[in-house]
Amino acid sequence: METLSFEFPAGQPPRGRTLVGCVGSGDLEVLIEPGQAGKLTIAVQTSVNGSEQRWQHLFARMFEGQAYPAMAIEIHDFGATPGVVRLRLEQGFEEIGHD
């Protein structure tokens, strides 16, 4: 298991919070809460060791140069593929938007 953290520039915090997914095989749990203005932080606990580069790339593609709200994201990953991670994050952002 590895614990990783990432940070990106962001806008204002959202109002809501949400949870999507589950720490099941090939899946992950994502908790999204309002963060500190200007910052998007991501804390990852993953069962896959040596995966920091992969997460870095994935998040960079998603968040760099985008105007995301300031969220504190916590991920508990149980071997999800990048596709599943992206899907869960987008699902979470959508719910934040609705709440």
């Binding site: 298991m1 919070r17 949870l19 749990e29 606990q45 069962s47 508990h76 990953d77 149980f78």
Partner: peptide, 20 residues
């Protein structure tokens, strides 16, 4: 609820990812 993060005190120390 999961945002209170009352998680297993035993899993992480065994290298197992916890759930919120």
């Amino acid at each position: 609820d999961p945002f209170q993060r009352v998680m297993s005190p035993w899993l992480a120390r065994q290298g197992v990812v916890p759930q919120a």
